[in-house]
């Protein structure tokens, strides 16, 4: 690999996807550089979740190329698992494992997938729990925690695999308003440390302060890609303007 031209972390080229006859992703092409933070927004049903779920092959794309950290996502299960280890994901509904304690949630994949010794995995997990500021909850079960705490555990769980990219699929949409900030704070810190991030979110404050670029999607297409400043103050497309007027109404 050449040292001069750093290859992009994520490269999507002309990606198309259909759910039956419904064309959810239309010719999606985008590159995400290492260390870049991308916020994806758009009206519901615009395909933004589907797009980021294609990056770790939770959804299969039917045409086009997706290359993540040098590995192309083909129909090769081994390669898919390889990519998934490098790509952390945080879900809207947390998806913590309810039958395992917080610590076990964090250690499971490092121990069984990365084959880390248990003691090392636990020490690592505790470090991440401290970073998301809930080390005291390690021995509890997920359902004993608040929504905000659960989402922070989910972030820590993804980080324990030491990923090169983090995907966030509406991480604050299922939270009560008073818990959104604690999760966003963790995400901001992560961004400051230089993590490559792709976030589907409606938190425009987060987009303003953290994103390098904002991607606006509608009807399965990328309508516009702009730095936040330009995106919020000088949107090019009418659809973007309409969307912004709807979500920034006060």
């Amino acid at each position: 690999m050449s040292t001069t031209a750093v290859p992009p972390m994520i490269q999507m080229t002309a990606v198309n996807k259909w759910f039956g006859v419904f064309h959810v992703l239309k010719n999606i092409s985008i590159e995400v550089a290492k260390g870049e933070r991308i916020v994806v927004c758009g009206p519901s049903g615009s395909g933004k979740s589907t797009m980021i779920r294609c990056i770790n092959a939770l959804e299969e794309h039917q045409s086009g190329r997706i290359v993540v950290n040098g590995t192309e996502l083909a129909r090769d299960l081994k390669k898919i698992d390889l990519v998934r280890r490098e790509v952390g994901m945080v879900f809207q509904q947390f998806n913590l494992f309810p039958h395992l304690t917080v610590l076990e949630n964090l250690c499971l994949a490092p121990v069984w997938v990365r084959k880390q010794p248990r003691a090392e995995a636990e020490a690592n997990a505790m470090r991440y729990l401290e970073r998301v500021r809930i080390p005291e909850q390690a021995r509890k079960y997920p359902n004993q925690l608040s929504g905000g705490q659960q989402q922070r555990v989910a972030i820590a769980r993804a980080l324990c695999m030491n990923p090169s990219v983090m995907l966030f699929d509406e991480p604050t949409s299922a939270l009560d308003p008073e818990m959104i900030k604690e999760v966003l704070d963790v995400m901001v810190e992560l961004a400051e440390e230089g993590m490559t991030m792709v976030c589907v979110t409606h938190e425009m404050g987060f987009a303003r302060s953290v994103a390098n670029r904002v991607v606006f999607m509608d009807g399965g297409e990328i309508i516009e890609v702009q730095p936040p400043e330009a995106f919020f103050h000088a949107p090019k497309s009418e659809r973007t303007k309409l969307f912004l007027s709807q979500i920034l109404h006060h």
Binding site: L82, R84, L96, F97, A158
Partner: peptide, 14 residues
């Protein structure tokens, strides 16, 4: 729930 399987998949679990 499907989300459980997706979460495991996202962690690279076979």
């Amino acid at each position: 729930p499907r989300g459980q399987i997706e979460a495991a998949a996202a962690l690279g679990m076979g």
